[in-house]
Every structure is written in C-alpha cells, then in structure tokens.
Design a protein around this nucleic acid. Sequence first.
DNA 1: CGCTATTTTGAGATGGCTCAAGCTATGTGG
DNA 2: CCACATAGCTTGAGCCATCTCAAAATAGCG
Lengths: 246, 246
Amino acid sequence: MPPQPFSVDELAGCALFQGLDREACSKILACGKVRRVRRREIFVRQGEPSQSLFLCSAGRVKITQVSEEGAEIILRVITPGQIFGGFGVLIETPCPATAEALEASSAVAWSIRQLEELFERFPRLTANLMRILAHRLREVESRLRELSTERVSQRVARTLLRLARLAGRRVEQGVLLDLKLSREELAQMSGTTLFTVSRLLSEWQHRDLVGSRRGRLVILNTHGLVALAEDLGGRDTPESGTAATG
Amino acid sequence: MPPQPFSVDELAGCALFQGLDREACSKILACGKVRRVRRREIFVRQGEPSQSLFLCSAGRVKITQVSEEGAEIILRVITPGQIFGGFGVLIETPCPATAEALEASSAVAWSIRQLEELFERFPRLTANLMRILAHRLREVESRLRELSTERVSQRVARTLLRLARLAGRRVEQGVLLDLKLSREELAQMSGTTLFTVSRLLSEWQHRDLVGSRRGRLVILNTHGLVALAEDLGGRDTPESGTAATG
DNA sequence: CGCTATTTTGAGATGGCTCAAGCTATGTGG
DNA sequence: CCACATAGCTTGAGCCATCTCAAAATAGCG
C-alpha cells in the first residue's frame, strides 16, 4: 500500500472517531478515497448532487453559500479533523454549500454507499456524526442570535476570536491567525461589508488590539477583543485613543 | 394502562420514527414520560442542565435564545411530530435554549439514560436523529445567509411563508397562520424590531397581501409574498400603490 | 518593475432603529 | 351588557450605524 497522505494517529483523535480504537479508525480510513486539492480548488460545489462525506486531513477549507442574488457568505472554515460536505449525503439532497480549499488541502472522502456500510459495521460512527451535527447546530444557532442582535464591531471581533480558536498560533506578540483571509472573506463570515471590516481593523490596529498585513492577522490583545465582542465599554468608548487600561 | 394523550399512529409517521414499525414506535413511546403544559409554560429553560429529549405530541412550542444582554430571538417553532430540547442531551451541555409552549401542549420526554438504551435497541433511532439534525443545520445555515444578506422586508416575508408551511391552514380567503404570534415574536423570528414588523404588515395589508388581526394572520396572496421574499421588484417599487403588474 | 488585486479612506445616502404618543382590541368587573 | 383597564399595535419623527460608491494608496505577483 502506498504511503497515505495522512497520519492515522492524528486523525484517530478527531471527533468523528471518538470512542473507536486505532484499528477501527484505520479500517474506516482505508475505505475512503483521498482527495488532494490546491488552493482555490473545489471539493464540492453548491447545487451538485452530493456524493461524499469528507474528513479534512490537511489544509483549510472554506464552506460558502451563495444566494440566488449572488451574495456569498462563509458558513465556516474547516480544519484538519473536521468533516464537511456530508449533510447533503446524509439527507440525500443537492449540496447546500460549496467547499473550497483556502490552501493546499487534502481530505478523505466516503461515498453514500460506503458510509451506509460503515454505519453498520461501526454504529459508533453514527452516534459521533450525530454529536458533531448537534454541536454545529448549536454553534450556528448562536451565530444566528449574534447576527440578529449584535452590532457589526461585535460580530467582527467574534469572528476573529473564533478564528483564533480554530487556527490560532501563538507567536511572540500574540496569536497569529494562521490562514490567509481577505477583508472580504472576513466580512462574509461576519455579515458585513469589506469596507466596514477594513475600517474596524484599521481602528483596532491603532488601538494595538490587532496587527494586520494583507491577509496576515495577529491578535495582540485578546482581552480587548473579547471586550469588544461582548460590548463592554458601550457604543464607542467616547475617549478612546490611549485607552485607560494602562 | 391509562389512555395516552397522543396517538401512536399519528406520531409513528414523524421523522424520528422513520423506518421503524408501529410496534417499535409503541415501545419507544412507552419508555418516555408524557409532559403536558399550558400556554406560556416552560419545558426547559436555557442554561439548565438538559435532562431530556422531547417529542412534541400536541400544541406549539417556541424555542428561544437570549443573549447576555437580554436580547431574545426565536430559533424555531415546534409542531407535533418534531423533537426539541435534545441537543444539550446529545452533547451533554447546559440547555442552549428555552422551550416555551405557545398554547396548551404536550410532549413525550426521554432521559439521557433511556435514550442511550433506546439507541442500542433501535439503532435506526440514531440514524433518524442524525438526519433530523442535518436538516435543521441546513435550515439554520440558510437563515444565517438570509440574515446576512437580505433586507428586513424579505426576511419578514420569509418568516410568514415559513410559518405558513409549518402551521398554515387553508381558509376561504387564503392561508391562516394557526398560531398566535405577536408582532414582537415575528420580529424575534426575523431579526428585526416589532415596529418594523408592524409597519411592514400594515403596508402589506393595504396591498392585500395579508390580513391581520391582533395575533391572527392570514396570507391572502402567497405569490406576492414570495415575490417580496425573493426581492423581485427591487427596493421599493418606485411607483407602488396599484402596481404595474395588473 | 510594471500590473493587478486588495485595501484604505472619504463622502454621502439610507434602511431600519429608537423613542414617544396615541390608538384599539380584548378581557374584566360592575 | 357596558365602561374601563390593559396589553398589544400603529404611527410619526429623528437619528445613526452601516452601506454604497468612488478614488487613491499599497502590496504582491509575474
């Protein structure tokens, strides 16, 4: 067998394989087909019949949805160990979203057939999938609430914090967001426009909350961002500038 | 055994019991405990440890979520045959939302323990739950997109159409929304304020798209509403009044 | 080393929110 | 059966957060 482009040990720890031993994981992974793509390439496109459930094994994948009018939002960013694309499979519906690689990525793909067989052999898999979906639902519901009730600055702050948890790497000055996202993409994750994101980031950069260079973001002051996300300090911190936090 | 306040035959058709025969449904239902509540009563409250998965057997239940600042939104309205409250159970987390009866309602409740046992005995149950969650996720993701990209009028129109599908009853003039929702509640479902909802409904009433009497809504012209939801006709139909479509 | 995509910034427009008042169904007690 | 109380609804006026559009600045890329 040729060397696989993923480590079973690494993937064995992921949510999908919770409670399954290494051997089972190995077998399950062996049933899947590995798919590698380059930056910008598409795993599945919204509207296509959905054929597979994917497990990301390397890279970053953004899941987007466009409306009929062409407005596009980013539903989530997938990192290694997370699944995607499977919802359409599970309920046999055209794929509700597009999955595009943000960087060179690979994923293991299982067809509906294979999945059903695997569900039989490893009932735990169904249970895990159920829990993953429950988690996602909970998360998306929270975002729905945020989008309904919070102002843009809060939502952008939350987006950055979420990205930090997802793909943050400690560096000396703070937390580097280890993915290249444009202002527009940040906007699509926060429910706003690239202009507003740009303005907010500029402001926050002046306040030393974040550092940004085209696509490379560093969170310098997590607490400050959290404060923004929770709207402590009211609308606009009347006397901002050199903040009183000292 | 005393008569149950639900009909097995009726519930047997619901998504949770897909693919299970009447006998199995019967057994599963027998494991649960029936809970009846009056209008305004609460099944579970956000933040409590979640103890049960519920299957609504009669009535209407609204699922709401409040933010720390006290802003409340309605995530969905549950009708007979639908489950609720279980997500916390499935992932053992405090209940992420409140479930309040919009009218006298009843539901069958299973504890975590019972559920786990049932999952063993009826693997199909897990698969069904998985599919239900996948559906909900898909729906909520669409709403996230709508909330991000559409204007208020579209979203309110969509809310009405959604309610019509959920609880619409054909009457001579059109489709009666068979649930008492206040302007405020419609607003909480659409991500806006009660004032804006009120204004929109007034306008639509003049245009004979809907009829409304305190809490009783009738959709008179579904196509018109769909057009609004999809934003055909642009921002404001410059020369509205007697529209040019006639 | 110029080209192009991305980002920044400004200026202006506006949709929808806020708040204040008045209105009206609906239910209640006399 | 009617007058009153009350919760819910409507409407107006003003405001402001955010969007839109235009143009200039910048950073990467080939």
